[in-house]
Amino acid sequence: MRFEAPTTVEDAVSLLAAESGMARVLAGGTDLLVQMKSGISEPDLVVDIKRIAALHEISEEDGGFRIGAAVPGIALGEHAGVKAAWPGVVEGTELIGSTQVQGRATMVGNLCNCSPAADSVPAMAAAGAIARVVGPNGSRDVPVEDIAQGPGKSTLAKGELVDSVLLPARPDHASDAYLRFIPRTEMDIAVVGCGVNLVLDANGTCTDARVALGAVAARIFLVPAAADALIGTSVDDAALDAVAAACSAAATPIDDKRGTVEFRKKVSGVLARRAATIARDRAKGTA
């Protein structure tokens, strides 16, 4: 196995593109190193992107924030601007691992690991976050929910990497929330995850919304019916019931060691209702 630590994105792309065997990108390493230690992944080339200075940056862009691929959870959690605009995205990222893991784990790494249970991704998808994919043929913008193809499998082509994610600008009275269900209180993997992002007008009527579910299908996905159930309402009990029903209906989980189909469908609705309530209260400034 070769280990490379380039200092520019271009060099990283060249290394990845030139490798004939299996190449893996190393950011925080909190997934990759575990996979390598347990024998699940045996790459021929590991490209560490942490020496690329630009990827450590959180920068303002068009009123939103661009988060570099090497920004660890702990740095995101300490960024007042991102926390104020996108508390749901930040709380999703902060749920990854322990405090020690937070010092290494990155939101973009969580995205590119392509786990259906990734904690930062439902909130990012609900936020309308856009991943910037850089490869041998230049760069392209991809909605985060389209990065994963299935568990552990991405839509990135050979030589491509995600160098950053853009969280868009926020209007007034807008907020988001992420909740996951785990049987324990931490250090666990989502049995269901739900991100809700909504915008209210001055009267408290919802004008825009996005709802995403995790861990209840092969990919994290948006639930347009749940968003439609919110838009045009004051996010009252009737709307919340409709959101819950839409999410329960949209979930297509499997029975496995983490939960039953029946349980996950039901809890998808429970979490959606609770997350929407939190997002609404945050948007109103009453949370």
Binding site: F181, P183, V191, G259, T260, E262, F263, K266
Partner: peptide, 8 residues
């Protein structure tokens, strides 16, 4: 008494 079992 895991959550799925208790809920059921």
């Amino acid at each position: 008494m895991s959550p799925p079992r208790v809920l059921k």
